[in-house]
Design a protein around this nucleic acid. Sequence first.
RNA 1: CGGGAUGUAGCCUAGUGGCUAAGGCGCCUGCUUUGGGAGCAGGAGACCGGAGGUUCGAAUCCUCUCAUCCCGACCA
Length: 477
Amino acid sequence: MAERITPRSENYSDWYVDIVLNAQLADYSPVKGTMVIRPRGYAIWERMQSALDTMFKETGHQNAYFPLLIPESFLKKEAEHVEGFAPECAVVTHGGGEELEEPLVIRPTSETIIWSMYRKWIQSYRDLPLLINQWANVMRWEKRTRLFLRTTEFLWQEGHTAHASAEEAREETLRMLDVYRCFAEEHMALPVLTGIKSEAEKFAGAVDTYAIEAMMQDKKALQAGTSHFLGQNFARAFDVTFQTADGALDHVWATSWGVSTRLIGALIMAHSDDRGLVLPPKLAPTEVAIVPIFKNQNRTEVLGYADRLHQTLKGSYRVVLDADENNSPGWKFSQWELFGVPIRIECGPRDMQNNQVVLVRRDTGEKLPVAAGAAPQRIAELLQQIQQALYDRAHAFRQANTRDIDNYDDLVAFFEGDGGFARVAWSGSPEAEARIKDDTKATIRVLPFGNQEQAAGKRCIVTGEPARHVAILARSY
RNA sequence: CGGGAUGUAGCCUAGUGGCUAAGGCGCCUGCUUUGGGAGCAGGAGACCGGAGGUUCGAAUCCUCUCAUCCCGACCA
């Protein structure tokens, strides 16, 4: 029998690991905390990259590549930055059989090396804005790792932009946050909250950190992407100045923003079920799997029928024909479900007689017989419906598990129970934030856009002081 | 970095001092099958995580060590 997937209800962590391993997305590799992204997982990443890269280009960015190794001294130039990252840096001390003059840090992020270069490339306001993105691997020595969600090495993209004014840099920060929101919603079918992070949760070295935040099926929050307004912090640290149109000298304004292979973890935890992976059609490496059902006496005919269907669909869809003769149809059904293929097409002798095929939705299991000639059109519609249904289901789930709470005891009870997202009024005091964390293990995920004005007239859930913010609280990954 | 658990064939597991380490899945060969994880027959595959020790004898007991997973403190 095939591998059993631990049901979500039994153990969510085990379920997650079972999905990743059995759907062949990734595998553990020999070094603690590192993993191999297998072809089925990497193909998803490639689709993510392709969609995001297009969006980055459409917003005026260019790709470049900066080196993996960063002089240790660079990290130390920005005070908060070094404090934030020093504990999780891997450091190269030897090369070519000799101890290095200066240790080299394996990048945990590239602000420092990039700004050291921007110093050379930026002299005038005419050189701005400078809009660069890089696709790269980074390394953060995490104490505790989880496949895709937090590994020692991971793949991501990091955008680093330089601007002549604070306003422009802020605009850029929000523009890219919106690109992430759009990508999450439209491609990943993942509803996200957008907003700003609290002081405690922001990026080391940023003035403001914005994030998209999603709810997973266990009601925990996952930060799916961040966009930072860096102010002039890195420009000052690396002495990056430019001459303005009126001849003055000013430090450059900066942003950085990134999403990582963690998004694959988000995808899994948002949509998949106890039968295996469920992928939104737009990111599914294979959209359609054709499973012919034949007996010995009609093998040639049925395979021919399936093959003609395959030929018909090949030009328009990412489709595979599973013509293997050893595994039973039932086995193949389970297998393609495990792999998360959005639509399976069953075609057997009965279908052939009726000149039809059976489309099976991965998300609902629903079986839909359709005339063979209508299949291409129906598939297009169905893929869209599945994409939308996944989004709607995730959105409804988040709505159902988000509660407005205005009493501290209720808040504590909420997180002692099933938990979810708690929407509360908050004074802005770090002490209040810390107390919530101590008492509930929940943190401020985001101060969401759109309803901050609702804080007016309310009192902080912890201190009772006048509230200045609406905060979303949740336990998180 | 603390707490817990586990390392026996590709995977899962049995074996808790005594013959040649057992079974299931998977894999290979052949036949038969195929509308929800098929059947039969045959076959390959393990220095039992590593090192040291106790013993006539160790997968099994002891010591050390390594690795991984899970739960907490820290984080894309």
